[in-house]
Amino acid sequence: MHPETSVVPSDKFDLAAANAAVEAGWPAIKPSADRLLQWVQDANWPVAQVLAPALATVGAPLAPYVRRVLAGEDETWKYHLIGTVVAQSQELISALRPELERIAFFPTPSERAEEVCDVAREALEQ
């Protein structure tokens, strides 16, 4: 099995891969960062509950990957990513402050509708 494959869950119940990613840690999971962030699209997924706290501990090095999600149009993913990963890391909050401020104070209509602006504001208030 390819090393990257073993740390990227194959479905929302693949806790073995999620735990392998946590155990491998940063920078070992760096090549898989974009794909691992996909598994925090819904905070209710079992793999998200394992991955989100671990990804938050990465801090600033994760910011470029998170920034790509925040620049996209998947508001549900933004909401869960900010709430479960970004808001749990002062380093990420600092590194992503311009993006968080834009979402919090100048949200798009869809960001407002999905309450992404609220979770961004809460992260900034920490």
Score class of each variant (00 low, 15 high):
residue 89 S to K: 10
residue 83 G to R: 15
residue 67 R to M: 08
residue 87 A to P: 00
residue 90 Q to L: 13
residue 104 A to N: 07
residue 71 A to F: 01
residue 85 V to G: 05
residue 83 G to W: 11
residue 104 A to K: 04
residue 76 T to L: 14
residue 110 S to N: 02
residue 108 T to Q: 12
residue 101 E to D: 12
residue 101 E to C: 11
residue 62 L to M: 08
residue 107 P to T: 08
residue 74 D to Q: 00
residue 79 Y to T: 15
residue 92 L to N: 04
residue 80 H to E: 10
residue 91 E to H: 00
residue 99 E to T: 00
residue 78 K to R: 06
residue 88 Q to R: 15
residue 89 S to F: 05
residue 89 S to M: 11
residue 114 E to A: 11
residue 88 Q to T: 11
residue 71 A to T: 05
residue 82 I to Y: 15
residue 110 S to K: 13
residue 93 I to N: 02
residue 107 P to C: 03
residue 87 A to E: 06
residue 102 R to H: 15
residue 103 I to L: 12
residue 108 T to D: 01
residue 63 A to Y: 01
residue 98 P to Q: 04
residue 74 D to M: 07
residue 91 E to A: 15
residue 103 I to P: 03
residue 103 I to D: 05
residue 63 A to R: 01
residue 93 I to H: 08
residue 65 Y to W: 11
residue 112 R to M: 14
residue 91 E to K: 08
residue 105 F to E: 07
residue 94 S to G: 13
residue 108 T to C: 01
residue 113 A to W: 07
residue 117 C to H: 13
residue 85 V to W: 13
residue 71 A to Q: 03
residue 92 L to V: 10
residue 62 L to P: 04
residue 105 F to D: 09
residue 99 E to C: 07
residue 84 T to M: 14
residue 81 L to G: 02
residue 86 V to L: 14
residue 79 Y to L: 11
residue 104 A to W: 03
residue 113 A to F: 10
residue 97 R to I: 10
residue 94 S to R: 12
residue 68 R to C: 08
residue 92 L to P: 05
residue 65 Y to H: 12
residue 114 E to H: 13
residue 67 R to K: 05
residue 68 R to T: 04
residue 76 T to I: 12
residue 110 S to D: 15
residue 89 S to Q: 10
residue 84 T to P: 05
residue 83 G to D: 07
residue 94 S to N: 14
residue 110 S to I: 06
residue 104 A to T: 06
residue 110 S to G: 03
residue 111 E to L: 09
residue 116 V to P: 03
residue 94 S to L: 05
residue 81 L to M: 12
residue 101 E to N: 14
residue 109 P to R: 04
residue 107 P to Y: 10
residue 115 E to S: 15
residue 101 E to Q: 14
residue 83 G to K: 15
residue 64 P to Q: 02
residue 77 W to V: 05
residue 72 G to E: 00
residue 75 E to I: 09
residue 100 L to D: 07
residue 95 A to R: 00
residue 73 E to I: 03
residue 83 G to Q: 13
residue 62 L to W: 04
residue 76 T to N: 10
residue 98 P to R: 14
residue 98 P to E: 12
residue 79 Y to W: 13
residue 108 T to V: 09
